[in-house]
Design a protein around this nucleic acid. Structure first.
Lengths: 288, 288
DNA sequence: CGTAGATTGGAATTAATATTTCATATTGAC
DNA sequence: GTCAATATGAAATATTAATTCCAATCTACG
């Protein structure tokens, strides 16, 4: 009568939370050194994720072999597979939204009703917002605000998908009584409009892949006139980046082939209001 | 006088931001394959942190040796030391995120910088999104989609602050090859434009308090022609609500006197795509 | 068009790292 | 206190991954 292989019975924890629970559960019954490495693992999960068996063992004050025994006792076949769980944890920290998005996409695919589409766009917007919140560089933002606050006229340049953002910026600048010029394509007078810009003005240019040729062309031409440019785009390899004094890289999540614009909007609003704020500060200083 | 060793001259980027800047700086002068791995590295930093030289090279479509040359060209002595920078980045991100947030709040209190403004808008957007996600009524959404999917032409009506949303809807509908008409105020021909609408068409009207009189007026007039209306507004007491077959109440959070439009945008995108979806379904059924 | 220099691909080599093994120590039961 | 079972340490080994090297291929310049 064949005995079933021992490893088949083991329920190997595949995610960090389960692993953590398992360790805490067995903690009392673990031998001294194993318990030592167990405690270390829960206290320094990042070290486990990135270190080598030798370096971790040294930090925890045990032998590498103990580390492996620890992993095996939990049902893994070695340190390497245990480490995967700790690495996954770090990745998921960043991509939990992405997974939710993927799930929603799948649901939408199988025709689960139109609510799924709405949820998808909300999730895409949330993801984009948390991304930009993490990645926005304070110094760049400050630089852009300073640059724009000094401008006599702010030119706003965007086509197609980015156009709504530009129109919002123009609206908000107007509300704040900051002179601005929205460069639209309708009347075909863009070249002339741009021609009036001087180095004392500034530009906000917005374009995402696939970059509207007109936006690129106009940005280039205005840059050549010495007008400083703040660009909002989606990659450092964007053609806009090369013309810009400051540029922001905004990674928008997409759903159903339509990218969110929430992060871009938030950035645009913040820029606009910050410029207004900065001008007010400057005004007070001049008077005071 | 001793000549300083060559490696001492190298400015090796030790943190991710510097590394990133260095890569972007040299990007133009990099050979093709090196540039390829450079782009991959900036686009998939997590993969670099976790992968092996072989796996990363495969994902990026180059040889492992190229990956090492890339690292060396940046001044590292090999792939391993380059990888350290990408790993450091992940550790720092996770360990200090909460602390950084707290620090930012403190800084905002003492009025130190404009970052607080940005954070405020991101927070407002997030709040609005989670609000609408909770409050959106599935049945209303479905009803609006059905109504709009049947329309011959979809008229999109919005002014001022809501105009960016309207322009986005018009863009997206165009992409989906759905006939639509954006009712702008520029040319002053709105009355005539609206005059063409029939009960077989439909309208998306968007307006928030203080309601733009023009939007109300146009909505009333088009409603009187028997054209069904889907309204996006901020209260059931909104003047738009009385004309609409279906209306959505969107509560947007505000910051510094400027209301977010993220929730409205998400709803608008979802409506648009859902309408496209519904039409495709209907098309299939007719053929099948 | 041809050649020198740079770039790239792919295999060979070297380094590192995980795992296994075995001798020794420790613990707990009788 | 002794024995068996278990746990631990340390070194040997096996595995895996990084790096180097060389031939082939491109590129730019004369």
């Amino acid at each position: 009568m064949a005995v079933v292989g021992a490893t088949m019975d083991e329920r190997v924890p595949r995610d960090f939370e389960t692993l953590r629970a398992t360790i805490l559960d067995r903690r009392a019954s673990l031998p001294k050194r194993i318990a030592q490495i167990a405690a270390y693992a829960l206290d320094n999960p990042d070290d486990i994720a990135f270190g080598t068996a030798a370096s971790i063992a040294a930090s925890a004050g045990v032998q590498p072999s103990t580390l492996i025994r620890f992993a095996q006792q939990l049902g893994f076949d070695g340190f390497t597979s245990l480490q995967q769980v700790f690495r996954e944890r770090l990745r998921e920290r960043n991509s939990s939204y992405d997974e939710r998005l993927a799930a929603l996409r799948a649901k939408a695919e199988e025709g689960a009703g139109h609510r799924a589409i709405f949820d998808g766009f909300v999730a895409a917007a949330s993801t984009s917002l948390s991304d930009i919140s993490r990645s926005l560089n304070d110094a760049h933002f400050e630089e852009a605000v300073t640059l724009l606050a000094k401008a006599e006229t702010i030119y706003v340049l965007a086509k197609r998908r980015s156009y709504p953002v530009a129109s919002y910026i123009a609206y908000a600048l107007g509300k704040l009584k900051i002179r601005n010029q929205l460069v639209e394509s309708a009347a075909g007078l863009n070249a002339e409009m741009i021609g009036f810009a001087t180095p004392r003005d500034a530009v906000i240019a917005i374009s995402f892949s696939p970059y509207a040729p007109a936006t690129i062309e106009e940005t280039r031409s205005i840059a050549e006139q010495g007008v400083p440019i703040v660009a909002i785009t989606d990659s450092s390899f964007s053609p806009l980046a090369q013309f810009a004094k400051v540029w922001f890289e905004v990674a928008e999540a997409d759903f159903g082939g339509f990218r969110s614009i929430s992060a871009t909007m938030a950035l645009a609003m913040a820029l606009t209001v910050a410029v207004g704020e900065k001008r007010r500060e400057a005004g007070r200083r001049r008077k005071g």
